[in-house]
């Protein structure tokens, strides 16, 4: 029995990685209707900045702060770039997907050049501590990761529900013409949505770096796993992304534990396809089309 419990806890830890990536994707989608394939690169950028700050002798928290600021700035710049064309004409959604793919390629290459391509690790404050389960033990920073995912989810949820900016973001996501008629500054809100999604990506990257070896090449897989988690939640609900991420994480851990590793790799794509075919709107999401008018 302890073995099953062990796999579930490991699954929750790994699932939080997917959930954190999924949260970033949902934050941008819920704020602007755009799907961002470069979310993994925001996370990698945050992690690599933090690794270098720690390397320069500073502590974990200053590293986290610097990472968040740098990645949020990158989000701001990209937000401005992506909002320009939307000002004066309707944007074809599928063309914008390719825009973010281009950004992903550029960021992966630039991070490789600036930070080198060697995989890095960032010791979390709980490095070395373990949580025993029977004779097995789970590294404590898995729990930190789970707590981090819950914290980030809480922050995103609180921000959307209880702040004026969050309210205007939800209005834009619900329908751009309705928001425009209500006097919302749609252009500015889109840039804010990008910045916040980047901010979530920065925090997620730093948290994840204590568990997953971070190298520029890991960005696209991180982003794709985030998509899997977000889609399960219906692409528009932060809760859906967290539930989706944890679901895939635990399913993978159990498949790895009781079946074999090949099936473990197939879990994320299979679960994603199953959800898309059985419940197109995602497990939690309502089927609602977000128009970027």
């Amino acid at each position: 029995m302890t073995q099953a419990a062990y796999f579930v806890v490991i699954g929750l830890g790994v699932g939080s990685v997917y959930a954190l990536s999924g949260l970033g994707i949902v934050t941008l989608f819920a704020g602007s209707g755009l799907a961002n394939f470069a979310q993994g690169d925001f996370m990698v950028l945050g992690a690599l900045v933090a690794v270098n700050v720690v390397g320069a002798g500073f502590g974990y928290l200053p590293a986290l702060a610097t990472a968040v600021v740098v990645v949020a700035a990158a989000g701001l710049v990209l937000g401005g770039l992506f909002t320009l064309p939307m000002r004066h004409r309707r944007v074809d959604v599928d063309v914008v997907i390719i825009g973010t793919l281009g950004v992903a390629t550029t960021m992966t290459t630039l991070s490789g050049i600036w930070f080198g391509r060697q995989p890095q690790r960032l010791d979390s404050p709980l490095a070395g501590a373990f949580i025993p389960i029977g004779d097995l033990q789970v590294p404590a920073h898995y729990a930190l990761l789970l707590a981090g995912a819950a914290l980030v989810f809480g922050a995103v949820h609180w921000f959307h529900r209880h702040t004026d900016v969050g309210l205007q973001l939800r209005a834009v996501a619900s329908s751009v013409p309705a928001a425009r008629d209500a006097g919302v500054r749609v252009g500015r809100m889109l840039v804010v949505a990008w910045t916040i999604a980047a901010l979530v990506g920065g925090v997620a990257g730093v948290l994840v770096a204590s568990v997953v070896p971070i190298a520029p090449e890991a960005a696209l897989p991180l982003g794709v796993n985030g998509f899997a988690a977000a889609i399960i939640g219906g692409l528009a609900s932060p809760a859906g992304a967290v539930v989706g991420g944890l679901l895939i994480g635990v399913a993978e851990a159990l498949a790895g534990g009781y079946l074999n590793d090949t099936l473990r790799q197939a879990v994320a794509p299979v679960v994603l396809l199953a959800v898309l075919i059985l419940r197109p709107g995602g497990l939690l999401g309502r089927t609602r089309t977000v128009r970027v008018a």
Binding site: D94, P269, V270
Partner: peptide, 24 residues
């Protein structure tokens, strides 16, 4: 037949998963 009922993003990510499955 399975995926084309979905809208833009969902279909695109569905095919991404299909490609990933193909690689595995």
């Amino acid at each position: 037949l399975a995926l084309l009922r979905l809208r833009a993003y969902y279909f695109a990510v569905g095919t991404l998963a299909l490609g990933a499955l193909g690689t595995v």
